[in-house]
Computed example of a mutant assay.
Amino acid sequence: MYKSCCFILGFFLSSVQTHAESIQSSFAGESKVFLNIYGFAADIDGGIGYHGLNYQLDQPFKDTLDALDQALMGHLEINKGKWGIFSDIQYVKTEEKKQVYSFPVVLSTKVNLSNFGVYYRAYEQFPNGQGFVIEPTLGMNYTDLKGVLGALGRQVSVEEDWYEYFGGVRLRYNDDSPWNIAAQYTYGTEQTQIAQAYLGYRQKIYTAPVNFRVGYRYVSQDYKKDSFKWDTVQQGPVIGIGVGF
């Protein structure tokens, strides 16, 4: 009995050590930092509702651009071995310049959709993340909305924010060619869906690797709480430039 217990304990400790070494080896390699600044030319459709005042959104990007007050869009990523963390922010503030009293209008809006996540390189066609790569992701979205709805001289201030967990997957393909492809899909616990796909062209400027990207982004949200609803779809082309450190 004593020998059996010793054997089982030894096997358990050996297994733990093997797994610990495997996890440790997955972090092997130097740390890398990537920063991408992008512009999202989104058309917005859907509806906003608050305390009985509803507004149907059907706003092409041109109208958003005309009313644009502030915007910040960027993606930061830190990678070591097969692991990485990332954060993305999409902040847009608009100020409506016209007054329409016969139907509800959005006079001003601020939309902040940010996220933070972690990914793991579960599959790579070739070593060091070359070829076709699959990376599952987990993280959290944060949405912060502020706006003023107006109709017939009546104005209602809207302010809501919420967190939600998300899961998803990233797909990449790159080789020795400067051309590369990337796509990502995430689904949140509050029904936020984000899908995006990009074609990139990579080259060095001085000593820094720079990646120019064009693609398409789709963001769908359907959030309801008490008398508030935010049921919108944002979609359109994306253009960005990324640099590695």
Rank of each mutant, 00 (worst) to 15 (best):
D45G: 00
L9E: 14
E95F: 03
F245R: 04
V238R: 02
D88C: 05
Y187M: 08
H19C: 15
S108Y: 05
L76Q: 11
P127Y: 03
Q99L: 15
R154I: 13
N174C: 07
K93D: 05
E95G: 09
Q235E: 03
H75Q: 10
E96R: 14
K98L: 11
G167T: 12
Y223A: 12
Q155H: 11
L152M: 07
T143W: 08
P237K: 04
Q196C: 02
N180H: 03
A67Y: 04
A182T: 09
T137D: 07
S25E: 14
E124G: 01
G153L: 05
F132Y: 01
Y101N: 15
G46V: 08
K82D: 13
E190A: 03
S108F: 09
E77W: 08
H51L: 11
S177Y: 13
F116T: 12
S220T: 12
R170P: 10
K110A: 10
F11L: 14
V243I: 12
T143S: 15
Q234A: 13
N112Q: 15
V233W: 05
R172N: 15
L53K: 09
F12L: 15
T143Y: 10
D43N: 14
S108M: 11
G81D: 00
D161T: 01
L171I: 03
S87N: 01
Y187D: 10
Q203A: 11
F126Y: 12
Y201G: 04
A67N: 12
A41W: 01
T94D: 03
A42Q: 08
Q90G: 10
Y101E: 15
G52M: 02
Y163Q: 12
A71T: 11
